[in-house]
Structures are given as structure tokens and as C-alpha cells.
Write a protein that binds this DNA or RNA. Structure first.
Lengths: 239, 239
DNA sequence: CGAGGTCTTGAAGACGATCAACAAACGTGG
DNA sequence: CCACGTTTGTTGATCGTCTTCAAGACCTCG
């Protein structure tokens, strides 16, 4: 199996053989996790970062009253907490949503990449910067988009991200997320989330059936959700 | 005047004389801007980044119907669009809210820093990663906090950020933002924003008078807004 | 001093939360 | 393979939050 991070980076720039090798060698350990297992705890001081090889994970924060806000979904190729390399301490938790395979990359190995491989460093930096761009898009959605627009926007985003690592095609993808988890990401109640999904169905834009999302009308959904893929920065560029 | 970026970075790690010098020399030009002037346009291909030396700026996105979502406020020492160094293309606009003094840092100079100064590179990377942490906290607020909690949280954040560059003390700071702009950042109507401010006043937590914010009860506001400064990563650490 | 921008308040209506009940799907043990 | 319990999804009803529209007060700066 090819390292999905390499696949993701090569979508945006050329990697040399040496860079690919360094990335692969930076992995100290591969682990398997069960669904709902914690990967990193909020507030934890940390000396390694975690790369998702397969499965879905989330970043989240628990509020005083027990409510949860999910701030990001992560899939194969995503470095869930690469930011902890410079931050040193987590400001949120990370958990597996589904059974996952993850790679542990010690911060020391990342530090050596920054010392010796400037171009690769810029690409890793790019990954965290794209994460931030996705965060901004979520802020925009939460501030300005309708409920069903928010769900639709997320579906568009996930479809393109999954497609970039070969996990989606034909406007369909596996979505192993309960409505409760989706609600925690959108900042809605589960009831309202359910109604937003119903609205997307009624508008013939997207359908969720089991763990399968089908985008029935991509153009229409893009229009309704005001989705502009620019923020995912999927273009090939020298960085 | 000392470069406020250096002040901000030195709050988090040691800079060598050489690193300070390199940062100062990376500035190609200093410009003065009037209030409401655009700094960078959404979608623009860009070859330099902008550092705020004084004044307030915002990142924002305009929706199809003309509504605006502000995704970040920036003050002295903030690199408004350092992320464009790796992204190459803007996915939002940046504008001056007040008259500003800004420094232009060509991407070529940043590239050379990544080639020759790994530690300084990590600190610049850190800046973008803290931006992302702030974005996440905004997502959490928009998803879970009450209206006045959201405003209060923003006040706590801005107070600490301003304090870190010597622009606030005694739980007061200058806040040159209209309620309309504040509303665009919170994702509220101006009317509701006004009522959230009134509630903070009624709870004796914070008061806005003219362009001055006074936090009347820091402990109380921190509790009410569930503010935990950890996400600002203001600690001193070797990075 | 007057005019435009900003702030404040009231009232009506839309949107989203909560509570409650039931249906459907899933998984586990018999 | 079926039965049963548990989790997840769906819908209705009621209530609170936030938006919109509208009007008046307060600045501030030419």
C-alpha cells in the first residue's frame, strides 16, 4: 500500500525519490485502533504526530456541559495533529470514528526534515495551512449558510478530499458517520441535522442511505451550498 | 520601533540575533493604508505576504448575496496571509479596518528562510498553526456558545493577543470595530450583536464605550465564555 | 449645525433546540 | 438463522434564539 500522505502531497507538487523515502522512514510505528478510541487527549503534551492510513478520525473539543464540537474530519493521508509539532501541546482531542490504521511520526523525525529538507518542510507546512483553510470555510458556513447548505457543503468538501486519495468516485462515497456525529460537527441538534438531510433529499441534491452518500446533482449542490473548491488548493504548483 | 512580529515570536521561543536580523531584512517595503482599503483580494495569485505593523485588519469572504463573513481579526505582529506563501493563491480577502502600517515580505525571502534557517522556519510555521487554533476556537464558539458567550470569548482572546504585543493592559483595550463588523465576525445580525453586548453589560462582565472595551470582571467573563487561553499557545517553549 | 453613520430598542416571524414517541437497522447470543 | 435489545434515524409539537424590518437616539466630523 502506498502511503496516502505521499499521494495527497503529490497531488499538489512533485516529490523526489529521496523525499518520498524520508517521509516513509519518518514513520516509527503503525497501529490499529478500534472505533471510538482516543488517539490524543486534549491538553496533552506530545512528542509525535499521527498520520491516518485508513479509517476516519475527528478533532473535537468537549464543553463544560458535556456537549461536543467537532472541528475537523480526517481521512487517509491526513496528518491529524501535525500542528502539534510546533505547538507542543494539544488544544483539542483526537479520536477514531471508525476502526483506523494510523502511523506514528515522532516530532524528532519531523524536526530533522525541517533541518535537511526545506522543500518537504514547505509541503508539510502546506498541509497544516490547508487544514486552516478548511477551518475558515467551516466558519463561513456556520456564520452564513443555511442548515442544508452546510451539510451540502461538507458533502462537496469530503467528496473532493476523498477523491484526491482515491476513496471516492462517481459522486458517491462511504460516510461512516452517524447523524449525531454530523450534528456535533455542524453545531446542530441531531433532529435538525436529520431535517437538513431530508431537505437535500427533497431538493434531489444528495441522498444518504446507510453509510453511503450519493450526490445526485453535483452542479445543483455546488450552487445551493455555494461551494467553491479553491480553498482545498488541489492544484499542482511548485511550492 | 521594534518589529512586533519579533515581539510576538519571542513570547514563544528564543530568537538569535541573526534570526532577528533576517526577519527584519525580509521586509521589502513598508506601506501605509487608509481604513477600509483592500490589502489582498480573494482569489488573487500572490508573491508576497503582509505583516501588520500597526492598525487592525480582517480576513473575510463575501457570499453570493453580498453578506460578509469575517474569519479573523489581525493586529500588530500578525502575518495576515503568511499561509499564502505555501498556498500561492488567496482563498479569501484581506482588508484594513483602521488606518494601518504594513510590511511587505516577498515569498522569495520566506523561501530563503526555509532554505537556510530551519528554526526560524518552525517559528513562522508556528504562527500559521496558531492562526488555525484560533479558527478552531471560533468554530467551537459558533457551534456551542451563547451569543454573549461568543462576544465575551472574543474579548478575552483579543485582550490576551493585544497584551502579548504590548497593546493592552488593566483589562482594557482599544477596539476600533463597529458593531456591524463584529456581527460579520460572529455570524450575527447587528441587532443581535447589540443585544449580546447589552447582556455582557447587564451581567457586569464587560462594557464597550466608544472604541474602548473594558473587561469589568475577568474571572467572571472567563467562566461565562468558557475561555481557556491554552489555544493561544502563549507559553515559552523550545520549538 | 446639519447629515451620515452608528447604536439602540420594539415587534413580528423564521430558524433551530428540546422533548417525546416511534420506526428502522444493527449486532449479539441462543 | 431468528429473537431481542440497543443504537440510530425519523417525525411531530412546543419553546427559545436570532433575523428582519422599522424607527428613533446618539455621535462625530465636515
Amino acid at each position: 500500500m502506498t502511503n496516502p500522505l505521499i499521494q495527497k502531497l503529490e497531488r499538489r507538487d512533485v516529490l523526489s525519490d529521496e523525499e518520498r523515502k524520508v517521509l516513509d522512514q519518518s514513520i516509527a510505528q503503525v497501529k490499529e485502533l478500534g472505533a471510538d478510541e482516543d488517539i490524543v487527549a486534549d491538553g496533552q503534551r506530545i512528542t509525535f504526530s499521527t498520520l491516518v492510513l485508513s479509517g476516519w478520525t475527528v478533532r473535537y473539543k468537549i464543553m463544560g456541559d458535556g456537549r461536543r464540537q467537532i472541528t475537523a474530519f480526517h481521512i487517509a493521508g491526513d496528518f491529524v495533529d501535525l500542528h502539534s509539532f510546533t505547538l507542543k501541546r494539544m488544544d483539542h482531542g483526537v479520536a477514531a470514528l471508525t476502526p483506523c490504521k494510523i502511523a506514528i511520526v515522532p516530532h524528532e523525525n519531523l524536526r530533522q526534515i525541517t533541518e535537511r529538507f526545506p522543500h518537504l518542510t514547505r509541503l508539510l507546512w502546506l498541509s497544516t495551512v490547508i487544514d486552516a483553510a478548511v477551518h475558515r470555510e467551516w466558519i463561513i458556513g456556520m456564520g452564513q449558510r443555511s442548515a442544508h447548505g452546510r451539510v451540502g457543503h461538507l458533502f462537496c468538501e469530503l467528496y473532493l478530499r476523498l477523491q484526491a486519495v482515491g476513496l471516492a468516485a462517481d459522486h458517491r462515497f462511504t460516510f461512516p458517520i452517524t447523524q449525531e456525529e454530523l450534528a456535533d460537527a455542524l453545531g446542530f441538534s441531531t433532529v435538525h441535522t436529520n431535517r437538513a438531510l431530508r431537505k437535500l433529499r427533497q431538493l434531489d441534491l444528495a441522498t444518504v442511505k446507510g453509510q453511503q452518500v450519493t450526490i445526485d446533482n453535483w452542479e445543483g449542490l455546488v450552487r445551493e451550498a455555494e461551494f467553491d473548491p479553491a480553498y482545498l488548493h488541489l492544484e499542482y504548483e511548485p511550492r
